[in-house]
Nucleic acid binder design. Structure first.
Lengths: 142, 142
DNA sequence: GTTGCTGCAAAGTGTTTGCACCCTG
DNA sequence: CAGGGTGCAAACACTTTGCAGCAAC
C-alpha cells in the first residue's frame, strides 16, 4: 500500500486524539488499491475479504474519516448513493459518465474553470468547490 | 395559473390514456406558482393548503408525471433529496449554490458549453445532458 | 485503565410500491 | 362501468446512531 496515504491518515488521527485500528488500516488499504468512484458497499465487500468481521457501519465511519482527513472526496452522481474518490495526489477533474455502461471518464479543461471563475466573479460569488458532470454515451456505447 | 402548462400536461395525459384529476391539477398549479428548485416535501406542503387530503405519494407520482411530460426537470444538489425545476419555457442553465444560506443563482455561459462539447468530442463522447454546480458563498454571506 | 472504536441492530431519511376503494372518461 | 388514480401504510435503499463490549494508547 502507498505508505504516504497511511502517513496522512496517521497524522490526522494523532492530531485529533483518535486511534489507529486494524479496521481503519484495512479500509484505507482497500481504498488505496481500488479503482476510483467506489461506493461504501463496494468498499465493504472488498474489505470483507481481509477483515471478514468488519461492519458496514465501520466502513461508513472510516470513509467519513478519510474525507475529513483529505484523502477522499465524496461524489454524488445522482444515483442515490455516495461514491468516493482519491483526493490525495489526484488533482481536481470533472466527469463524463456513460449512461449506458456506467464508464466514467475524468477530464479537466482549464478554460472551463477559468470561465466558471469569471461567471462567479460577475455575480460576486466565491467558489469553494464545483462539480461538472457530462452525461451521455461513451465511444463504445454509441 | 399559466394555462400553457396545463395544456402541455393535458396533451401528455390524453396521449397516454391517463386521466386528469383534481389532485394533478392542484400539484401542477402549485408547481407553476412556486419558486424553482422545490423538493417534493415543500411542494406537498404547498399543495396541502388547497388539497388537504392529498398524499405525499401522489405528489411524488405527479412530479414523475411532470418530468415525463417535459414540464419539470429533476435536480440533485447532493443534499440527499431531489428537487424539481420548471423546464417548459425555461431554457438550460447551471447553478451557483450558496452553502451558507442556500440561495441558488442560475447562470449560463455559452463558452463553457462550447468547451464541454470540445472535451466530449476529443473523447468521442456524446453528451445528452450535463450539469454544472458551483458551490460557495453568495455576496450576502461572505 | 481511559477513552475512543467496533459490530450489531435499530432508527432515520427520502422515495417507491401494494392494495382496496374512488373517480374520470 | 372499466381502468387508471388516490390515500394510506408498509416496503425500500442508503446511511447514521445507540449501545455494550473491546482494544489502542
Amino acid at each position: 500500500m502507498a505508505s504516504k496515504e497511511l502517513k496522512v491518515l496517521e497524522g490526522y488521527i494523532t492530531q485529533n486524539q483518535l486511534k489507529i485500528t486494524r479496521q481503519r488500516r484495512a479500509v484505507l488499504k482497500a481504498f488505496t488499491e481500488c479503482e476510483n468512484h467506489v461506493s461504501a458497499e463496494e468498499l465493504y465487500n472488498m474489505v470483507s475479504s481481509a477483515e471478514s468481521k468488519i461492519g458496514l457501519a465501520t466502513v461508513y465511519r472510516t470513509l467519513a474519516l478519510l474525507t475529513e482527513s483529505g484523502l477522499a472526496s465524496e461524489l454524488d452522481f445522482g444515483d442515490g448513493q455516495k461514491r468516493y474518490e482519491h483526493r490525495y495526489m489526484h488533482s481536481h477533474h470533472d466527469h463524463m459518465i456513460c449512461t449506458e455502461c456506467g464508464k466514467i471518464i475524468e477530464f479537466n479543461h482549464p478554460l472551463i474553470e477559468k470561465f466558471q471563475e469569471k461567471v462567479a466573479a460577475d455575480n460576486k460569488f466565491i467558489i469553494t468547490s464545483h462539480k461538472l458532470d457530462l452525461l451521455g454515451l461513451c465511444n463504445e456505447c454509441q
